[in-house]
Lab assay of single mutants.
Amino acid sequence: KLETFPLDVLVNTAAEDLPRGVDPSRKENHLSDEDFKAVFGMTRSAFANLPLWKQQNLKKEKGLF
């Protein structure tokens, strides 16, 4: 399991300012399950079932792209 970080560490943070080991294209993977659901309004599995373009739009909207 990946290390999780608080939302404010990941949202609207440039790649070079992210904690070590965080993939800038997969910031959402480093949210706790609770934060993930609070941000996206759905579970990880529901998010994973969305088309890629919709996932990317949601990530942009939430500052996690």
Rank of each mutant, 00 (worst) to 15 (best):
A15H: 11
T43I: 07
K37D: 13
R26D: 04
K54Q: 15
D8Q: 11
K37L: 15
R20N: 14
E28F: 03
W53G: 08
F40T: 01
V22D: 03
E28D: 03
R20I: 14
D23L: 05
V39I: 09
V22L: 06
A15G: 09
S25Y: 11
L18K: 02
N49F: 10
K27N: 04
E34T: 09
E28R: 02
N49E: 14
L31D: 01
T4V: 13
F65D: 15
M42S: 01
H30D: 03
P19H: 04
T13M: 15
V11I: 14
A15M: 12
L2R: 12
L10D: 01
R44Y: 05
A46T: 10
D35R: 01
D17S: 10
A46H: 11
V22T: 03
A38Q: 13
E16H: 12
N29K: 11
S45V: 13
K1W: 10
L2D: 09
F5H: 07
V11R: 12
V39D: 00
N29F: 12
H30V: 02
L2K: 11
L18M: 06
E61S: 09
K54P: 00
Q55K: 06
R44M: 05
T13E: 06
K60C: 14
K54Y: 14
L31S: 01
T43W: 02
V11S: 07
L50Q: 04
P6T: 07
K60A: 11
K59G: 01
F5S: 03
Q55A: 04
A48V: 09
D33M: 04
L64D: 03
E16I: 11
S25M: 14
F65C: 15
N49T: 14
E16G: 12
D35L: 05
F36I: 01
S32Q: 03
P24H: 07
P19S: 04
F40N: 00
W53L: 10
D17W: 07
L2H: 12
G63N: 07
E28V: 04
T43A: 09
E61K: 09
N29E: 15
K59A: 05
L52D: 11
P51I: 01
K54M: 13
L10V: 03
S32A: 07
A46L: 09
N49S: 14
Q55T: 01
T43R: 03
W53P: 07
K37I: 14
E3Y: 06
E3L: 12
L31C: 03
K62Y: 08
V9E: 07
L52K: 12
N12A: 09
K1S: 12
L31T: 01
A46E: 15
P24D: 06
R20D: 15
K59R: 09
D17I: 06
D33T: 05
G63W: 03
E28Q: 05
P51T: 05
